[in-house]
Nucleic acid binder design. Sequence first.
DNA 1: TCCGAATTTGAATGCGTTTTCAATTCTGAG
DNA 2: CTCAGAATTGAAAACGCATTCAAATTCGGA
Lengths: 340, 340
Amino acid sequence: MPIRKQSKADIVAVANEAGVSISTVSRSFNHPDLVKPQTRKKIDRAVRKLGYIRNRAAQTMHGIRSATIGLVVPTIDHAIFAEVTQAFSDAVEHHGFTILVASHGYDLEREYAIFRKFLEHRVDGVAFIGMDHSEDLRQLIAHQDIPAMSVWNYDPSSGYSCVGADNKAAGRTAAQYLLDLGHRDIVTMFPPVTDNDRARARRDGAMDAFEQAGLEMPQARQLEVSYSIAEAKARTVALIEADVLPTAILCGNDIIAQGVLHGLRKKGIDIPGQVSVMGIGDFPGSKEMEPPLSTVRIPAREIGSRAGETLAQAIIHQSSDIVHIQCDTALVPGGTCRPV
Amino acid sequence: MPIRKQSKADIVAVANEAGVSISTVSRSFNHPDLVKPQTRKKIDRAVRKLGYIRNRAAQTMHGIRSATIGLVVPTIDHAIFAEVTQAFSDAVEHHGFTILVASHGYDLEREYAIFRKFLEHRVDGVAFIGMDHSEDLRQLIAHQDIPAMSVWNYDPSSGYSCVGADNKAAGRTAAQYLLDLGHRDIVTMFPPVTDNDRARARRDGAMDAFEQAGLEMPQARQLEVSYSIAEAKARTVALIEADVLPTAILCGNDIIAQGVLHGLRKKGIDIPGQVSVMGIGDFPGSKEMEPPLSTVRIPAREIGSRAGETLAQAIIHQSSDIVHIQCDTALVPGGTCRPV
DNA sequence: TCCGAATTTGAATGCGTTTTCAATTCTGAG
DNA sequence: CTCAGAATTGAAAACGCATTCAAATTCGGA
């Protein structure tokens, strides 16, 4: 039971209270085995009495790690990033790290500013969601000697460590699935791909598959739809009202797919009877939908978790090796697609 | 263009490079108006050349704020908390703060540990989602002199500052809506309420309304369902298969409601023809569903935003006033309920 | 050109901690 | 009971920066 926070509870106060020197107090925290058990007990008692809490800032000044890791995300407010963030946080917390989180809203300038701020806080490492960075950021990263890594996309040729899934393969898998089912009249709905390597990779993968199958994809069939259930729904309704509904819709992510499903349902279109819908991402909840969404699984939790673990290890072992870790994607057939 | 990170880029190195004293360098950062423009330019050049980045840890030791705020959430991995977190982060970032985030998974012991860790990092303030805390935590908070607040629930009698919605009123509103539509056979699905004041308040509010209407709510009609689409769906299917479907289902949050909808749809039950479904929370996406979910709006974004703003102001003005800010809830009729 | 005031700069001190390194106390064998 | 070596402790020097206070410089006006 801590007493009043009278003067100030620093290490000196603890030392006085315990009747030892500050060196001993410090040692008692950092190398408990070097101090006599009895002395340690006295110190513990003093700590409790004064409500003393160690000052990380003072420790950090000695080159000691700050025990913080920076996580830079486009936005926290997407189910999928929230999931990655949670898993990442759990993984690093397990090693005693706390995360500093900031979002840049797909603005590369802000991303740079965030990283600067993280550096001021002397984070021990940093993870970025995505691989698209400004040149300035790349420079800055290169001149620091803390581990940096990108999360979410897997790119074996990247100059940074990365943990993620092969989004291009995921896009290809999704497209191929529709092709294999016999679809030839397909509309794609992908989010804007500028400064978004994940979306871009998925789209590229899908287009590869289409091209390889000799399928023409006219611009009019390639819709750009923001990450929003509402917009996807509206665009789908528009398709129906313009009477240009394809036999299948390929969505860049499950959120868009969800919007598409609602749009179709609103207009009384049968799924998959009249239109097949394919997502990418396998969000929590996708498989519970009715019918369950056909999608490509991207293991967000695993990615976040392994990323956190990898970064924590790199920090602890002061390793600057570049590692590329791939997390597997998998087709999840679901029930929103059928052969034509 | 920063040069190699040769020796170390501290303020001394900058001072040498610029040919001035460290005092001047420091001043140039903190009181730029006190140093001659020309000198400042020299310093800026040195800073850039050395790639110098200020050390917050060293500054924090002077009683200067750490510019960090701790945010403690049950889990980031719920759309609703992700939304609050994002809004909160944006609000405080605007004032130069960065957030430390950690989640406790509804474990009050972990919550305590997290707060301790935040204190070691000398956060300038802390926000908790929820008002249920361990006694130890309350003690600890009381003995610190940084502003603490709870977010999400509004309780004018709370000893802490809070920003949130009146969850009890929200529960009452939802229940009353069903009652007004004439429903008398109602099943409730609420998440576990232990250590979760938000869910508890909603349930209490709903039960109040039922009681006031003279409606009996047998235990068998009060289901405890975890925050999970899958579980809600399964429980709903079970209801149908046991042939004990009510005329309306009141859900503690929109996630559960979503699961219920899927369960009903799976079994071919018409909504709202055969069963009315009522949610609470108004998650992003709820109104895009087909039919749009009837729910009670709880403005997550506004809550997060105002909480962040309030806490930032309290820190900046060193105010220890306790404020209670209420964000309005509102019935969102939607299309999943109908009169009986 | 010179003087006092205003502006600009630097030396020194302190912040809370860790870390040598040396001093002290203890231990057990002889 | 002694003494070497082990175990334990303390004094003092960093760590990177902000601030105080005094010194140095510059400026305006006579």
